[in-house]
Every structure is written in C-alpha cells, then in structure tokens.
C-alpha cells in the first residue's frame, strides 16, 4: 500500500496544460499571482475568475481536486476575513456588541477571500498538471541565471529529485521498522502527546542511520557513474519550448493587458 503513495498532487490525464513546458506554467502562475495583487475592483476579479475558469477547463482536472487545496487554508481564510471585516475603519453598516462592521470592511474582506481562493486554486492548477520532476527541471532551468552569482541551482535541483525518489523507499522502511518494533512490544498508539513523541525515538534512530547509509552508498554510485556536478553535463530530456508555450506567453500578455486596463478604467 505504501508503495503506491504519490508525492505532490499530480493528476495524470492528458491535456494541453499537462504537455506544456514546466517553465511556462511556473511563469504563468507568477503572472497570475501578481495580477491578483494588482486587482482592485470587481471587474478585475471578474476577469481573473474568467481566466482561471478557462485554464481549469483546459487542464481536464476535475474541479473537486482544485478545491481540495482550499481545506488547508480554511483557517487562514477565516482569520483574514474576520480581521478585515471587523477592523476596517469607515462607514458603519451595523454593530454586534462591540464589533463594528463597515462598508469598506465588507468590501476588503470579500476581496481578500476571493484573492486567497484564486491564489490557491491557481497554483493548484500548476501542481496538478506538472509532475514533481518536471517542476524541478523547470525550476533549475528558470533559475539558471542564479548560477552566475554562485547559487548552486543544479545541485539543489538534484537534491530535490533524489529526495523525490527516496521518499517512498524511506516510507516503506519506516513501516518495516515500526512493525519490527511492534513485534517486540513497542507501543506507538497509546499515551499522551509527550509519550507518543518519546515512543518515536526508537523509530527515528534506526531510520536516520539507514538514511545516512543509503546516502553514502548513493554518493558512491553516483561518482562511479561519473557524476561531478552540473558542469559539462548534457540532458537526456532537455526542456524545449513548443508552439503551445509561445501561445501561452501571448495569452499571459493579453491577460495582463486586460487586467491593467480594467484597473485604470474603473
């Protein structure tokens, strides 16, 4: 069962968005986030909604998956909405005990909620249509310019993709150690928080030892296969822009134009 776990939330179907270059999607997400912070009236948000709806349709991912990410920010959403609702100065609409609700407050709270929801759903579109590995590749290539200021971009990407490969292996190992300890009478279930944390120690120690051993082995295997950092390295699957990527960039430009126009006009 543990073998089947997926990392990230990639939803495997075939769509234009899935086939798009990860760099295009990364940039698009950034553009969208910026546009959300530029928006300051209802029309802007409407445009953002239309754009998001169109992208979701193109992605062939069911809407329920997009909304799933919202659960994680529900608490944050509630806090920011209530703060905006009750603490904004302005024309009073009504008052519950000492809490004043103003017209400006309602407006701010509404915008804040919509902005947060769009932000989360918008970035979910990217993670749902891009495998973690493509994402790593895309990040490495997009941040390549940082190599000039000696940021080890390639090394960081390599670490990320190795971590992705070893997560299922380590999860399986944890399971194995846990069962071995349970067979010898270890108790991971009962007791309070402190007790539970304490019972994790005999689990974590062997897990760490084995992880370090794996790391040494892997490093040796990588060196034996001539790995010596990113320099002079070629790619088996280099990232190449296709027609759809150029079309996407044009769409971003058009979208940004509409956003800015709506912002100034209204």
């Amino acid at each position: 069962m543990l073998r089947e776990i997926t990392i990230g939330q990639y939803y495997p179907v075939d769509s234009v968005l899935h086939r798009m270059d990860p760099r295009t999607k990364l940039f698009g997400t950034m553009v969208y986030i910026v546009s959300l912070f530029l928006a300051d009236n209802v029309w802007c948000y409407l445009a953002a909604a239309v754009f998001l709806a169109a992208v979701i349709r193109l992605s062939h991912v069911p809407l329920s998956f997009m909304v799933r990410g919202l659960k994680a920010i529900l608490f944050l959403l509630l806090i920011s909405v209530s703060f905006n609702l009750f603490l904004t100065e302005g024309e009073e609409l009504f008052r519950i005990w000492f809490l004043r609700v103003t017209r400006e407050g309602v407006r701010m709270a509404g915008f804040m909620a919509v902005r947060l929801i769009f932000l989360v759903v918008g970035s979910s579109v990217m993670t749902l249509t891009t495998t973690p590995n493509q994402l790593t590749d895309g990040l490495e290539k997009s941040l390549g310019f940082l190599k000039k200021v000696r940021v080890p971009v390639h090394e960081m990407a390599m670490i990320m993709s190795i971590a992705l490969r070893f997560i299922p292996i380590l999860v399986e190992e944890t399971d194995k150690i846990m069962k071995a300890q349970m067979a010898r009478g270890a108790d991971f279930e009962s007791g309070g928080l402190v007790q539970k944390a304490k019972s994790m120690v005999p689990l974590l120690v062997p897990l760490f030892i084995s992880a370090f051993r794996r790391a040494t082995d892997l490093a040796m295997a990588m060196e034996a296969r001539c790995y010596h950092g990113g320099e002079g390295r070629t790619r088996m699957k280099p990232l190449r822009y296709a027609g759809r990527d150029y079309a996407a960039y044009l769409t971003y430009a058009a979208y940004m134009g509409v956003m800015l126009a709506l912002r100034t006009v209204f």
């Binding site: 993709s161 082995d217 892997l218 990588m222 296969r225 070629t234 088996m236």
Partner: peptide, 24 residues
C-alpha cells in the same frame, strides 16, 4: 535501491551518459 538515481527507468539509464556530456 541505493544506486538508482532516476525516478523513471529510462532516465536512470541516461544518467551516466548525461554526466559524461553525450549529446541528447
């Protein structure tokens, strides 16, 4: 387990040639 680097079989096989700078 400790000598496979790629997340997909074919990518792992390509790892060595990538390191020695073989064209795509």
């Amino acid at each position: 387990d400790n000598q496979i680097i790629g997340n997909v079989v074919e990518e792992d096989v390509g790892f060595g040639p990538e390191n020695i700078g073989v064209p795509t």
